[in-house]
Nucleic acid binder design. Structure first.
Lengths: 332, 332
DNA sequence: AATACCACTGTAAACGTTTACATTAAACAA
DNA sequence: TTGTTTAATGTAAACGTTTACAGTGGTATT
């Protein structure tokens, strides 16, 4: 009875005396069939332990019903909201989701991941928080598989994306602190390049609009990492030349808060902190961190919807909001 | 030139005047071929933008070279270490990794995920932190695809697994606190059932060995969640009947610490805290949390190795160690 | 009684690879 | 010369589905 080989519809056909076409139709719920026959096929399939061979299905259909999500492997905890949303929205549309990791600066791991999913003729590709170099983008552009970037703006508009307006976020975060009386405001852990760096522009513009002199000593370039935050004080030569800091991510803020507290300063008394992202981490620490909270969940939803509706190329900014917690206070 | 359809080796064959067999062999580096021919094929493939159809390959080879990782979708941050390890070890063996999420108590999402990967004839399945019900386990058992559980002990030994010894961890965590003078020790957020619940047994045994009376009021069943920790004080009716607590996970400890601090208590002065896992989170908070640190990265490595070496069924415990940080202190 | 329709099922081609086996021609050995 | 080996390539079957098309027999319509 149990061969070494996997059970195929051929086996079911033999067992039931039907043709493989009929079995196939019944198993995939197409056409109309005698009720008894259906039951018989289903029973036999169950008994024999049949599992469909998706490779064969995908081959003949020339399309698989999976959505590939390629995520930056950097310690970015916000992606979990996005992924949850994608999972939910995909499940609602009877799609499977495969998640792959790729390095953000590692073009070989990027192209490997992308090749992997293109080779499988996935239904769509969602790239989360990933900046691709030109070569990898061209691989992606050469296929007819729709793709969309989340949490990254593709500067040359060659691909659709859904993200937050980094310039605006930078501006608003700065303005938030200014309105609390701060005039010496640090900017910590933002990358020099890529779409996130627009936050720097927003920061600068805001200072300018409020006639606050720009001081490049207050900016520390980084990579949105914990270390960028925890090293910030050292880089300031262990003094605090600022009364408030805007941190590139929640973990940057946490890192900075820890080193600052460990050095004997108080947050927010000696230093106000605001971070980008607003993941659950901001509530894990004390004082809880005021954040520029992004709509990550909705990004995931929008991403799947875009792929399904096969819309034309577009870019979209999702709203963000500043949620004040305990890490910021009015400068007295 | 550019059809709507994808380029296949057939197109390359036509273009080069070779047979598809030759093209196939050259593209997959098999057999021996004229150097010039090889170059020509490679060039044409590149020019035409050929991408292999993995569905066809998998179909004929009856095996895909991917490792599927099915992860519990519960907010468990430790899985990222495991996944990183799996990625690394898989890449070293030229295997692709697909990650799928499944609910821990959601048997339909579990079986969906498992079906999905079985249908694709993956090379192996790694289940991370997932307890499967009997039905789903039987699906898994019915295939010849090797699978292994990480960070979960399969109680009936029907599948191989690599995890930490939960009983021992429970025992050692308890002993650690006892040796610091604590006698009223809480146990917070541990599930009633499943392999993690062995920690309760270890806890009880340790108390017994040190002749400390067991008090079931000190145990709060939970699900390793932040809320289990943050609600703990309320469940204790806003008093602290204990001087130390063992928390089911880092986030449980953080949740408990926050609510305790918010209520005006001090950690570790009024309450010592120790948590299981020891992810980066324990260093994000102040006081940093003493933890029973597990070897997650190695779990990932071991998982892939098991699948590749096709070893016989086995179970394995990886070492853990207690790392003392700031959240525990001697009871005076 | 002839016709049309319908429910149900079968036949066979197609999807894009891989690979065992066959073939060819050149090189070499005898 | 003839036979043997070898490099390079071709032929064709196979993998497990789906699906357009073609039956078949029965029922309803005229």
């Amino acid at each position: 009875m149990s061969e070494d080989n996997r059970i195929t519809i051929k086996d079911i056909a033999k067992e039931t005396g039907l043709s493989i076409a009929t079995v196939s139709r019944i198993l995939s719920g197409k056409g109309q069939h005698n009720g008894d026959t259906v039951k018989r096929v289903l029973n036999v399939a169950e008994q024999l332990g049949y599992v469909k061979n998706t490779a064969a299905v995908d081959l003949v259909k020339r399309q698989s019903h999976v959505i590939a999500v390629i995520v930056s492997n950097t310690k970015s905890n916000f992606s979990s909201s996005i992924i949850t949303a994608i999972e939910n929205q995909a499940a609602a549309n009877d799609l499977d989701v495969f998640i792959l990791y790729a390095g953000n600066n590692d073009s070989s791991s990027q192209s490997r991941a992308i090749r992997t999913v293109i080779e499988r003729a996935v239904k769509g590709i969602i790239l989360v928080s990933l900046e691709l170099n030109e070569h990898v983008k061209s691989i992606l552009a050469d296929t007819t598989i729709p793709s969309i970037f989340l949490s990254t703006a593709v500067k040359d508009q060659s691909f659709p994306y859904v993200t937050s307006d980094n310039y605006q976020m930078g501006y608003k975060a700065t303005e938030f602190l200014i309105k609390k009386g701060h005039r010496s405001i640090g900017l910590i852990g933002i990358p020099q390049h890529g779409s996130i760096s627009d936050r720097i522009r927003g920061y600068e513009q805001c200072l300018h609009d409020y006639q606050i002199p720009f001081n490049d000593k207050h900016i520390q370039i980084g990579d949105c990492l914990y270390e960028d935050g925890s090293n910030a004080l050292t880089k300031f030569e262990n003094k605090l030349p600022i009364t408030a800091a805007i941190c590139a991510s929640d973990v940057v803020a946490i890192g900075m808060m820890n080193s600052v507290k460990d050095a004997g300063y108080k947050v927010p008394d000696d230093l106000s902190l605001i971070s980008f992202d607003g993941t659950e981490l901001v509530d894990y620490v004390r004082p809880a961190i005021t954040s520029v909270t992004q709509s990550f969940y909705n990004m995931g939803i929008e991403g799947v919807n875009y792929l399904l509706n096969d819309a034309t190329i577009k870019m979209k900014y999702l709203p963000f909001k500043i949620i004040e917690r305990q890490s910021t206070q009015k400068l007295i």
